[in-house]
Each structure stands twice: as C-alpha cells, then as structure tokens.
Write a protein that binds this DNA or RNA. Structure first.
Lengths: 118, 118
DNA sequence: CTTATATTAACCCATATGGGTGAACATCAG
DNA sequence: CTGATGTTCACCCATATGGGTTAATATAAG
C-alpha cells in the first residue's frame, strides 16, 4: 500500500501547503463554523474562502453539513494519518542518522544498547 | 513560534505535495545521487528533474554538493520536523475526538486508565 | 410576495506550476 | 585542443492557483 494512493497524499499535502487553508483548519479545530464565519476571520473575500473550503473538502479534510441555507463545516483530520505516516518515516530516518553521527562523535564503537544523548 | 514561519511550512508541504518529488526523496533516502542518476529513474526529462530538485532544495529538503561537474544530492529531512509537528498536532486532536466518542459509545464514564479498543 | 441572508457559479486576471526543447556552460578524458 | 559528459539557462506551452467582481440560486424572515 502507498503508491496507488499517491493522489490522496497529493491532495492532502497540497491543501496543507497554503497558510490560509491551514488557518481555516486551525479555526475548525476549535469549533464547527459556517462559510461566512470563516470568511469574516480572514482578509480575503467570501468567494475566495469558499474556494479554499472546497479544496479542503476535496482533500477530505473538511466535512460539510448543509442546514438550510447554512453550510456548517467541520474538521476531519482522518487524511492526516497518511500524510503524517509518510513524513514521520523520513523524519525518523533522519533522527537515526543524527543519532548514528552522534555515537560516531562521542563514543567509538556503537554500544549494543544504543542510548543516544550521552 | 509557528506563525512567522508559515513560509517555511508552505515550502515544505508544497514540495511534498508532488509525487515525483516524494519519489526523489525516497530515492535519496537510500543513498546520495547525482541529478542524472535521479533523472534516469523517472519518466520525465533531465531538465524537469533538475527543476524538481531545485524546488526540494529551496524547501531545504535536499542538500547539494558540487564535485567537479557532478552535483551530488543528499536528503536533508530537517524541515520535516516542523511539518510533522503541525500535522501531528491535528492528527492527535482527531484521535482524541475518536477516543472520546468511543468512551461515549462503549462505557458511560471514562475510566481513569483509558485503554481504547475494547 | 418581498426582502435579506448564505453560498455558489461564472467570469477575469496575474502568476505559478509541471512538462518539454534547444542552447549554453563547465569539467573531465583523450 | 577536441570531444563527451553533467547541469543549468532561457524559452515555450498548457493548465492550475489564488485572488477579485458580479451575477445567480436557495432558504429564511417579515
């Protein structure tokens, strides 16, 4: 698993790469909100906000409940699991690198129980 | 810290949102490689590869060492820490939501030692 | 019914993006 | 010097993106 879901990762990370959209998610983490509520919290127009929300929706990061004329939005952090897994994998790899470098610098041969940091 | 480094997060997540670039990072996680080496592993042109590498470099995810006419590239996963932190924060928030929902469904009052999943 | 509210749709605009090609530049090998 | 190799530069192209404005649509409220 992984390769065939590249499209989903693309959408998730792409949606997250915009500061306004990250701010919208931060806002929704506090509570549900309508499109207008969110727009009023940002210096961009209502229409622009609506488009950002659509992007987040397409990425599966936001769920929309239409109540009459109001669209109530809620955070759905489920897609973050995959993104986090991808990133964490490489981040951990990097940590291990640094740890290995550390043992090289501090002690000579790496001990069988490698406790890093002294 | 956080808000004033939005630009960096933008670059990191933006760079990560492209499948070719993620594949390049995956390749570099195995070993260092020259631009040509990487290009030959992908169905795109050398020039396109060069541009992707520049994007990764601008995001700080790739380090370049020029050795004569060869540019040797190496992964630098340091910027992933910030990205991971951002994502993990919301992912964990979501996990807690689900856990809370779970305790609501299964048992009445949440136990002092909340072991989820049965 | 009429009006105000909430949201999207349909455009326009400038710029960014991912891809390509051909030329330029730099360096290594004869 | 000459030629091959490794990379980038300068373009071109189509499409996406983020922003805006002016309708159009749908529902709530009077």
């Amino acid at each position: 698993m992984g390769e065939h879901q590249a499209h989903r990762l693309d959408a998730t990370l792409g949606a997250l790469s915009d500061p306004t959209r990250r701010a919208i998610l931060a806002r929704l983490a506090k509570s549900e909100a309508r499109v207008t509520d969110i727009a009023s919290a940002f210096p961009i127009s209502l229409n622009s906000t609506s488009k950002h929300i659509r992007t987040l929706e397409r990425a599966g990061l936001v769920r929309r409940t239409i109540r009459g004329r109001e669209h109530v939005l809620a955070l759905d952090a489920a897609p973050l699991a995959e993104a986090s897994a991808w990133i964490e994998r490489y981040r951990r790899f990097w940590d291990d690198r640094l740890a290995a470098l550390d043992t090289l610098v501090t002690g000579g041969a790496p001990p069988p129980s490698p406790r890093r940091k002294r």
